[in-house]
Each structure stands twice: as C-alpha cells, then as structure tokens.
C-alpha cells in the first residue's frame, strides 16, 4: 500500500473512533475539564512557588509557564497518536493482539490508528492559552522563523515522547508488561521536564539530554526561543530537536518491529 492510502485509512479509522467518543458528550466534557484543571494546578503550583522566590534556576514564572506549555502541546499530539501504546500488554495477555497481525496492513500502523483520544483538546486549549498569556507578558516577537522553529520542535517533541511510548510498549513483547513501566517510569520522568533541567544534578541533565532525550522536548527549544542559557550544554542545542526526534523515533520503531518478530500468541 502506498503512503497516501495509509493516510486515507488512518483518517477513516480515527474518524470512527472520534464519533464513538463524542456519543458520550458528558464524559467527553468532563475529561477535558479534568485535564485543564490538573494542568492549571501545576501552573498554579509554579505561581505559588515563585510568589516568594521570584525565580527558579534563573527562570522566571512566565518563562517557566512557556516551558511547560511547549511540553503540554506536544504531549497533546502524543496522546492522540501514541498514548494507547502503553496498554499493549493487555492486548497480548488477552490474545486480542492477533487481530492486528491478520490484516494486510502494517501492524504498527494498525495499532497506532486503533485509537484517537479526543480529550487531548484539553492540552491544546491549555497550551494555547498559556502561549497567548506569555507572549503578551514577555512581549515575544513571533517572527516567521521563530514560529516555524516552535512548530518543528513540537514535532520533535511528539517523536521523542511518542518514541518512548513505543519503546515501553515494545517491552511487552519480551516481558508481557508495559502499562506499569509507563506509570512508574515515564510518567514521573515526564514530570521532571515541567521544570527547567538546569536545577537537576548534572548526571540527570546528561541523562535527559542524551539517553532519554526529554531535554529536546521543551527545555532546549524553549531556551532558544526565550534566549536563555543552558549551562553545561552547547549554545542553541535546541535547534537539533527535530533531528533528535526523528532518530529517536526510528530507533523506537525498530525495537518495536524486533519485538513483533519475537511475538508468540497466547493461542487463546
């Protein structure tokens, strides 16, 4: 099948999913309200923190909110595309994963297109709200170049976080566990990046730059856009964010495919 066919198929599959979710209008609204509340909660926590102390590792409140919003925006897309990957273990254990293998399309693609979580509108509303507020407060000048760079780093962020979700789900092929790895590993690690990495011990900063490249999701790109320094790292390292995303995702995809080869059905 050609790439174009895949696009067409993706939209067909997800539009069915979206329509299904919109049937439960109350649940849909409640989830968005819930998401916006918890993000606003984190923003409020930052505000209280800096109410007494003014700055955190030379980052001011609005700069931190910007940093946070970059991460929330890419995470919103990530939820749409990849969030359900963490639940691969359930499919394997129940034997329902087999249905992704018996169709004439790429199983990775099929699994990816299975779900489309519309609640991510919560992330979009929140991050766009914060971008507007911060641009106004810090009088950011959104030139074409800067806007394009933000867009590309968001894509980078999607690929990095999505790649990690894909890697976590691939673990299910070997260990029949994945959801748990997300909650004890990736969920808290993502929370670390809500704050500027400069405050963490150097080893942690290196790890989040070069092993699990979370730093390229928001810290490095935000530093470029806000013209802030990133101690211990080369200047403008943030420009590599899209590239890092592509490489990291390619690695994740290969690992997933490797795991798939190893997969044996439960036979149930």
């Amino acid at each position: 099948m050609s790439v174009l066919n895949y696009f067409d198929l993706y939209f067909k599959l997800i539009s069915a999913g979206v329509r299904a979710q919109l049937q439960y209008r109350f649940a849909f609204v409640m989830r968005i309200v819930g998401l916006i509340t918890s993000y606003t909660g984190t923003a409020l926590t930052m505000w209280i923190m800096l109410y007494q102390f003014q700055e955190l590792g030379s980052w001011t409140l609005y700069e931190m909110l910007f940093l946070f919003a970059v991460s929330v925006l890419s995470w919103g897309f990530c939820i749409i595309l990849f969030f359900h990957f963490r639940g691969l273990d359930t499919y394997i254990l129940n034997g329902t994963f087999d249905r992704f293998l018996v169709r004439p399309i790429n199983p990775f693609f099929h699994f990816m297109a299975m779900k489309f979580d519309v609640a991510s509108f919560g992330q979009f509303i929140f991050s766009i709200g914060i971008f507007t507020l911060v641009s106004f407060k810090l009088q950011l000048d959104w030139t074409m170049g800067k806007s394009l760079f933000l867009l590309l780093s968001v894509v980078g962020g999607i690929l990095i976080q999505g790649g990690l979700l894909v890697m976590i789900s691939a673990l299910a092929f070997w260990t029949t566990k994945s959801e748990q790895f997300y909650w004890v590993g990736m969920f808290p690690a993502r929370n670390l990046t809500n704050y500027p990495l400069v405050i963490y011990p150097k080893a942690v900063q290196w790890f989040t730059a070069f092993v699990i490249p979370f730093g390229f999701v928001n810290y490095f790109p935000a530093a470029v856009l806000l013209e802030k320094e990133t101690p211990f790292f080369p200047e403008n390292i943030g420009y590599y964010s899209p590239l890092v995303g592509i490489v990291f995702f390619a690695i994740a995809y290969s690992i997933w495919m490797l795991g798939l080869k190893r997969y044996k059905s439960t036979g149930s």
Binding site: Y24, F26, A27, V29, M30, R31, I32, V33, G34, L35, T37, S38
Partner: peptide
C-alpha cells in the same frame, strides 16, 4: 456518574 475524571482531578 459514569465518568468521574474531572471531579477526581480536582
């Protein structure tokens, strides 16, 4: 309520 997400998040 079938969906309690929002309330529980608060």
């Amino acid at each position: 309520l079938v969906e309690t997400g929002g309330i529980v998040d608060v």
